[in-house]
Amino acid sequence: MSRVAAAIDRAKSEGRGAFVGYLPLGFPDLQTSIDAAVTLAESGADILELGPPYSDPVMDGTVIQEATQAALAGGFRLRDTFTAVREIAKRTDVPILVMTYINPVLQYGVDRYADDLLAAGGAGLITPDITPEAAEDWIAASKRTGLDRVFLAAPTSTDERLDLIVKSSTGFVYTISTMGITGERAELDAAARTLVARLRDHGVEHACVGIGISNAEQVAGVLDYADGAIVGTALVRALREGGLDGLAETARALAAGTVTGPASGN
């Protein structure tokens, strides 16, 4: 049973959509990033999305890029991912997904990475830069270990590609609301609603929308048609500017937008 899917279903049973919160590991330092993830979980996140810093974060906006570059400058190493996940998992039952580009996984060894993530208490991977047909080794490793594999769907995805993404993903499908890098948007692209509807047509069980969500109103708007809302930049900025207290305040405000009511069709 997918821990991530179970968390989404649990939120739904409580009349809410799921709140997926992203933070970079190692920012502003490793221990604070561990404390920040726990704070996020305690402040309303149903699922944690944690990003090990990467030297070429092609999908990330300025706020996240600056945070990840600071983490790398501070000495973060790939093995620190498993240390962080292990410490966070000891302090919260909220499932932990690692959002990683595929190259570090390949360099580490796909099976070794899966085994170490499972041993640390992680729930799975979000892999933004690899498609299911190119991820045979990771799919096999995730099936062996029971880890979730979250692939991305974009408004430009063909129906054939969406069908493959739905069949290959577990936990949820990461639904990109706008094309381009992550960051806050004043208004979410209406393409997200259309994309989720297309995913429903292909049988998706859980679709969570990310990229561009920065306040409770936008969270509520997304949860009118999706199963979860993914927030990153707003949380990273809150941590950078307000520390753990600022992060907690922002997370609670975002979580307030998740209430959809028992009659919701999400």
Score class of each variant (00 low, 15 high):
Gly26Glu: 09
Val219Leu: 11
Ala140Tyr: 10
Ala67Tyr: 00
Pro24Phe: 09
Ala11Asn: 00
Gly228Phe: 01
Val209Asp: 00
Asp129His: 04
Thr145Lys: 04
Thr260Lys: 09
Leu152Cys: 01
Ile165Ser: 05
Ala140Glu: 11
Gly146Arg: 10
Asp29Gln: 11
Ile8Pro: 00
Phe76Met: 10
Val222Asp: 07
Phe82Ser: 06
Tyr113Lys: 03
Gln218Val: 08
Tyr225Ser: 14
Thr100His: 08
Ala135Ser: 12
Tyr108Asp: 07
Asp93Ser: 14
Ala123Gln: 05
Ile34Ser: 08
Ala11Gly: 11
Leu254Ile: 14
Gly221Arg: 12
Leu72Gly: 05
Ile181Leu: 13
Val231Phe: 11
Pro52Met: 01
Ala154Thr: 13
Arg79Met: 08
Pro28Lys: 02
Leu199His: 05
Gly265His: 09
Gly122His: 06
Arg240Ser: 12
Gly246Phe: 10
Asn103Arg: 09
Tyr101Gln: 04
Leu223Asp: 03
Ala73Leu: 14
Ala73His: 08
Leu147Thr: 10
Ile165Pro: 03
Ala71Asn: 14
Arg149Glu: 01
Leu23Arg: 13
Thr62Trp: 06
Ala255Phe: 15
Leu40Val: 13
Leu244Trp: 09
Arg10Thr: 12
Phe76Ser: 06
Pro57Tyr: 05
His202Asn: 12
Thr194Tyr: 10
Ser55Trp: 03
Asp9Ser: 11
Val173Ser: 03
Arg3Pro: 05
Tyr54Ile: 00
Phe27Lys: 03
Asn215His: 12
Thr182Ser: 15
Thr178Cys: 04
Met99Pro: 04
Ile213Asp: 00
Pro52Gly: 01
Pro128Ser: 07
Asn215Ile: 04
Ile126Glu: 12
Ala6Lys: 12
Lys143Glu: 15
Gly265Ser: 13
Ile165Asp: 11
Pro128His: 10
Ala18His: 00
Glu49Thr: 02
Asp159Ile: 15
Thr170Val: 04
Lys90His: 02
Ala5Tyr: 06
Gly242Lys: 04
Arg149Leu: 15
Arg10Val: 08
Leu48Glu: 13
Glu42Val: 08
Arg200Trp: 09
Glu241Gln: 10
Asp163His: 11
Ile8Val: 14
Ala119Arg: 07
Phe27Met: 02
Asp201Cys: 05
Asp9Leu: 12
Gly212Gln: 11
Asp56Trp: 03
Val98Arg: 03
Val259Asn: 04
Ala234Asp: 00
Asp227Ile: 04
Ser13Gln: 01
Ile88Glu: 02
Ile96Cys: 14
Gly246Pro: 07
Ile130Pro: 02
Thr68Ala: 01
Asp159His: 11
Ala186Ile: 06
Ala6Gly: 05
Glu249Gly: 03
Gly121Phe: 10
Leu162Trp: 08
Val94Asp: 00
Ala234Phe: 08
Thr81Ile: 06
Gly246Trp: 12
Pro24Gly: 02
Asp148Thr: 14
Val196Cys: 07
Ala251Met: 08
Thr127Pro: 02
Pro57His: 05
Glu249Met: 03
Asp189Val: 14
Ala89Asp: 07
Tyr108Pro: 00
Ala238Arg: 06
Val219Met: 12
Leu106Tyr: 15
Ala67Arg: 09
Asn103Leu: 11
Phe82His: 00
Thr131Val: 14
Pro57Lys: 00
Asn103Glu: 10
Glu184Val: 12
Arg79Phe: 03
Val196Met: 09
Val231Trp: 13
Gly121Glu: 05
Leu106Ser: 06
Glu66His: 06
Tyr101Ser: 04
Tyr225Phe: 15
Arg185Asp: 13
Ala255Trp: 10
Val173Cys: 02
Arg77Val: 10
